[in-house]
Design a protein around this nucleic acid. Structure first.
Lengths: 182, 182
DNA sequence: TTGCATACTTACTTGCAAGTAAGTATGTTT
DNA sequence: AAACATACTTACTTGCAAGTAAGTATGCAA
C-alpha cells in the first residue's frame, strides 16, 4: 500500500471523527497532503469507497488488537477496550460509531453495511469479555451480559460527544461509573 | 408566528434529527412545503439562524414540559424524561444532542453556544430529579447524582443511534437497564 | 528500446449549495 | 386613495462539491 493511500485514509478518518462524513471534502485532504483531488480518486473511486475503507480498516484493527489482548484478564481487557475511547479523546476525536451513526440514513449503502457489521463485532467482543469476567468471578453485575455490554458501549460513545458539547470531561466520569458497575 | 415559519422549523428539525445539520439543504425544506428557497431566507436570515432557532425551541420545550411535570414523583419524572427519547425513536429520529453533538466542530458559533446551554439545562434537570428521588427514598443508587445523570443521558443518547445502526431495539434494553439501576 | 504499469497532474464538467436583490400580491393603516 | 408592512416569488450570483478524461513522469520488464 502506497504512503499516499495510507495518508489519505489517516486524514479522512480524522476528518470523519472530528467533523463527520458529510462535512469534509476532498479539498480537506488534498490541500494538507499537497496532492490534487484527482489523486484521491486514483486511490478510491468514490467518497463512498473511501468511507467504506476507513470503517473496514477500523474493523480489522479491533480484530488485531483484541488478538494481542487475548491472554489478558477480563478486567485488563475491559480497560484496554475503554482505553480505545480515551485515545480518541486525547486526539479530540469521537469514536467512528459516534461520528457515522447519527448520519446513518445519509450514508451510501456500502458504508451502512460495513458500519452495522462493525457494531456487531464490537458488541460481540465486549459480551465475550464480560461473560468471562462473570465466569471467573472478577465481575459481578446483575444485568444480563448483553445489557451490560450495550450500556458500556452506549455510554462510552456518548461520553466523547458530550465531552465536546459540555466542555467537561464526561468521559472520565463515565469511565469511573462503568468500572464501579462491573 | 406564521404557519410557514413553524412548518419550516418542524421540517428542519426532523431533517437534522434524521440526516444531520450538514446533510440537509433548503431544497429539502422548500420542495415538500411547496415554497421557494428565498421564502426560507425571509423567515431565517441564514441556515445558522434556522439551526439556532431549532435548538432554542427545544430548550424552551424542556422548560415547558418539566413545568407540567413538576408535581409528579421523581420516578414518574424519570419516566417522562425517558419517554422523550422514546418519542424520538417512534418517529425514527435521534435526539437533537445526538444529531448535533458529533458535528459540533462544524457548527456556527451561535449554534454551538445554544447547544452547550441546552446540555447544561438537561443535565441540571435530571440531576434535580435524581437528587429528590434519593432524598425521598424512591431511588437508591451508589454513584453520585452527577455521575448517574450523565450516565443516563449518555446511554439514552447512544441508544437511539445504536438502534439505527444495529437494527435491534437498543433503546428498550437501555431503558430497562436504567430503571433497574436507580 | 520498446512497452507497460503505477502514480499521479491538468483541465474540465455538472450540479447543487447558500444567499441576495428586486419585484409582486394582499391586506392594513392613515 | 395613498402609503406601508407582510409574506412571499423570480431571477440571479458565487462558490464549492464530486467526479472524469486525457495527458505525463518514473521505473521496471521483456
Amino acid at each position: 500500500m502506497s504512503d499516499t493511500r495510507e495518508e489519505i485514509l489517516n486524514l479522512a478518518e480524522d476528518l470523519i471523527r472530528t467533523k463527520g462524513y458529510n462535512a469534509f471534502s476532498y479539498r480537506d485532504i488534498s490541500v494538507p497532503l499537497n496532492i490534487k483531488n484527482a489523486a484521491i480518486h486514483y486511490h478510491f473511486n468514490s467518497k463512498a469507497d473511501l468511507g467504506k475503507a476507513i470503517i473496514n480498516r477500523t474493523r480489522q484493527n479491533l480484530v488485531k488488537e483484541s488478538n494481542l489482548w487475548k491472554d489478558l484478564s477480563p478486567v485488563e481487557q475491559l480497560n484496554k477496550f475503554i482505553s480505545i475511547y480515551e485515545k480518541s479523546l486525547l486526539r479530540n476525536q469521537i469514536c467512528f460509531m459516534g461520528a457515522l451513526g447519527p448520519s446513518y440514513e445519509t450514508l451510501p449503502e456500502q458504508m451502512q453495511t460495513e458500519l452495522t457489521l462493525a457494531s456487531e463485532e464490537i458488541r460481540a467482543y465486549l459480551r465475550n469479555v464480560l461473560q468471562r469476567g462473570l465466569d471467573n468471578g472478577s465481575f459481578n453485575f446483575t444485568e444480563t451480559v448483553s445489557e451490560k455490554a450495550d450500556m458500556i458501549i452506549a455510554s462510552l460513545l456518548s461520553s466523547l460527544i458530550l465531552t465536546r458539547v459540555t466542555k467537561e470531561n464526561i468521559f472520565l466520569q463515565i469511565r469511573n461509573t462503568i468500572l464501579k458497575g462491573v
